[in-house]
Simulated scan of single mutants.
Amino acid sequence: MPSPSGFSYDQRPDGTVVVWHHGKVAAKLRGPRAAEFVDEAESGDAQLVMARWTGHYKHGNERTARQHPRNRR
């Protein structure tokens, strides 16, 4: 599956993390969740981590579902 793109994140001085998707706010994380997110984003593929944390990603079964006999017309 290709890696999602278009994500970025900002760490604010107050500890808040804002995740952006194509220029729009996708998530705001505060406290221990923000720290956990930053640790995970810095240790792995940041684009994939941001997609998973925000829920903005495809599940990989779209082509399979489209080709299923009941969905063909």
Rank of each mutant, 00 (worst) to 15 (best):
S43D: 14
M50T: 03
K58F: 14
A35I: 02
P13Y: 06
Q47T: 07
V49R: 05
G44C: 01
S3N: 10
F37P: 12
M50D: 04
E36G: 13
E40D: 14
P13C: 00
K28A: 06
L48T: 09
H22N: 14
E36N: 06
M50W: 12
H56K: 00
W53H: 12
G44R: 06
V18T: 12
H56I: 14
N61W: 15
A27I: 05
P4L: 00
Q47F: 10
W20T: 06
G15W: 11
T64Y: 13
F7N: 02
H56A: 00
G31D: 12
A41G: 12
T64D: 15
F37N: 06
W20V: 05
F37T: 06
R52Q: 14
G60N: 06
E42S: 05
D45Y: 07
W20F: 09
G15C: 04
G44S: 11
W20I: 09
D39N: 10
H56G: 00
P2W: 14
V17L: 05
H59G: 04
A35P: 04
S5L: 04
P2K: 11
R63V: 07
R52A: 07
P4D: 07
S8N: 08
P32V: 09
V17S: 04
L29T: 08
Q11G: 02
P32R: 03
R12V: 01
E42R: 03
Y57A: 00
Y9W: 15
K58W: 12
Q11P: 04
L48Y: 01
E36I: 01
K28I: 15
P32T: 14
V25F: 09
H22E: 14
L29Y: 10
A34I: 07
Y57G: 00
T64C: 04
E40G: 02
T16K: 06
A41T: 10
V25A: 09
A27M: 08
E40A: 12
G6A: 03
E36Y: 02
V25I: 15
P2S: 03
P2C: 00
T64H: 14
P2N: 07
E40P: 05
Y57W: 13
H22I: 00
D10W: 10
T16Y: 03
T64R: 11
V17T: 08
T54C: 01
S5C: 02
R52D: 13
V19N: 06
H56T: 02
E62Q: 13
T54S: 01
R12A: 13
V38R: 02
D14R: 00
G44Q: 08
W20C: 02
A27W: 08
M50H: 03
H59Y: 13
D45V: 01
G23P: 15
N61G: 04
A34H: 11
V18K: 00
Q47L: 05
S8G: 09
